[in-house]
Write a protein that binds this DNA or RNA. Structure first.
Lengths: 337, 337
DNA sequence: TTGTAGGCGTTATCAT
DNA sequence: ATGATAACGCCTACAA
């Protein structure tokens, strides 16, 4: 019955409602001010009958606005990413903006492709979990005054806002928790798929500072940055030292899992044989044996802020600024320390 | 230095290269056939110098194609969803298609909004993890011959392909594993945020069938569908029965966590006090105490197939068909049973 | 209060 | 081999 051979345009509606295209356009854009009630009703009826759906593509072309932003996550597999995305989405929904989510899979080339694609599709701005190797690309964007916000990592060279965890504080919270339980030989393992990732560096640096501040010795053998696959190997070396660490801080969720794998393989007991704290709260923290003490990131607030900054930047029209917003981590004290 | 006050269009390139817009367009679309080498080089140079980026929006408007599909997941928090999305993305990348990911948050209204949005943005098709309450909406889409593929759940009324787990088999695998370990009093808990979700129904039905086939009694008290928050409560009731179950199948990852929470709270031992199997493999399965036996879904294959079906549907132009593709689950035998 | 005309940036058709 | 011209569907002056 419904022969949808041709797409229905604003002209069809105009014809059916016996008004001009402009009037229909006014109607669609809620500019009812000088519009006769009758006209309004006729248009509404026509839209209904024809099941007319406005074409955003045409609208974007004309208005040079898409009311859509792009979000590029470094790796969608991290719970952290999906939580942030959810929160960005919430904020955007409330502002009638849409989001497009892309997964760079920790690959700078993919990231570049996505950035190009998003711009070609006229996204009004981008929120990106950057892979610090595309610095020149980011610089280009900011030079062109393209709205850009970083999440999780900052890129010092680039004039854009960043949403970051207070990573030093996160490490310090963990160190202090270890110390309060009487541990003095504490280590940290982070992963390092990327070259120059600021959270990793900051967490290690915060770790050192916290030890020093508490007059504890920093033992270099207890500090490792390795690929996820090598975590158990490095930990093995560490535990075979004459003086093995008593406590380990896991730099993120994936490292935590590897540490727990090692502990299980070697039939160690937490926290007696090795105390553990993980940065990033994980789904199983409270049901594990023992329950895992974690340092949680306020992902909702972080995603919210990222979206807020970007949309203000887009609407307000001011320039990209290089300001870093630090969020405070929370210690979730459980039983692994 | 780079005054990007005006966006650079194909006309600018044409002017600079001293050719017409049409020629540049040819070039952009790789139709070099009748194009002089010189011209080609001049155009390439002009594009380079001007840093010209084609506008996909204008292209879409003209071609009525966006080379983009939409993916609406029921809830991005499930690992299952992100794995499928990754796999869809891989397939699409290889076919030069883009994807837009949307998160319906198990909310039919949100789902509807997203479907409307995606269509307005001229997505060429949609892959959706459906919330079976928008049946009429799906029907409309198929009536208009709009390419549509379902994942995880099927909607019997609608003519579209579905990618499904062989849920009955999944339940049967678990039941047989329980039986092989000598358990005869076995139960199942699934969750039910939605009204009429086919995986849940099929898993329960497969569970019943498998018990019957093995001449075991089906005890209704051992079969529950409840909200996630009520899992521990229901399990409590179940375990207080005169004859409590010896083994429980968790309908998905979230239910599994709740069951493990209950076990922990009540200081039970797995599998002695209660054997457990979970549908959906979880990140912590192999490091838990004990290791959790799970039924894994072949998410890569499922996402791949979903994308393949949709893109063939788009390119091939044939009609939507109602065919369900069932994928075989795998038992990952560990120690919780 | 509503209509007319032109253009957003691209591609397609048809000349040349 | 390349160019002129007319769409694609919508919005926005400006005119009426």
């Amino acid at each position: 019955m419904n022969s949808k051979l041709r797409t229905i345009t604003i002209s069809d509606v105009a014809e059916k409602a016996e008004v001009s295209k402009s009037t229909v356009s006014q109607y669609l854009n809620q500019r009812y001010e000088y519009m006769g009630k009758k006209t309004r009703e006729r248009i509404a009826a026509a839209i209904q009958e024809l099941d007319y759906q406005p074409n955003f593509v045409a609208r974007s072309l004309k208005q040079k606005k898409s009311t859509t932003i792009g979000v590029i996550v470094a790796n969608i597999s991290h719970e952290f990413s999906t939580q942030i995305v959810k929160s960005i989405e919430d904020y955007c929904n409330a502002s009638d903006y849409h989001i497009i989510v892309c997964n760079a899979e920790d690959d700078p080339d993919k990231e570049k492709e996505y950035i190009d694609m998003l711009r070609a599709k006229q996204m009004e701005g981008i929120i990106v979990f950057p892979t610090s190797t595309n610095i020149n690309l980011y610089l280009e964007l900011t030079m062109e005054d393209y709205p850009l916000v970083f999440v999780d990592r900052e890129v010092p060279e680039v004039n854009a806002s960043s949403i970051m965890l207070d990573n030093k504080k996160a490490a310090a919270l963990a160190v202090e928790e270890f110390i309060s339980h009487g541990f003095s030989k504490v280590g940290i393992i982070t992963n390092s798929t990327d070259n120059n990732v600021s959270p990793r560096i900051e967490r290690i640096s915060g770790f050192r500072d916290a030890l020093s501040k508490n007059s504890l010795e920093v033992c270099e053998d207890y500090i490792k940055s390795v690929e996820v696959e090598n975590v158990t190997g490095e930990l093995d070396k560490m535990m075979r030292l004459n003086e093995p660490p008593e406590a380990i801080l896991a730099g993120n969720d994936l490292v935590l899992i590897e540490i727990l794998r090692f502990v299980k393989q070697h039939k160690l007991t937490i926290p007696e044989d090795l105390a553990v704290i993980g940065i990033d709260d994980v789904s199983f923290a409270s049901i594990y044996y023992p329950e895992i003490t974690t340092i949680a990131q306020p992902t909702s607030e972080m995603g919210w802020k990222a979206a807020e900054l970007l949309l203000n930047r887009i609407k307000g029209g001011h320039e990209n600024r290089r300001d870093t917003h630090r969020f405070t981590p929370t210690l979730l004290r459980r039983s692994s320390c």
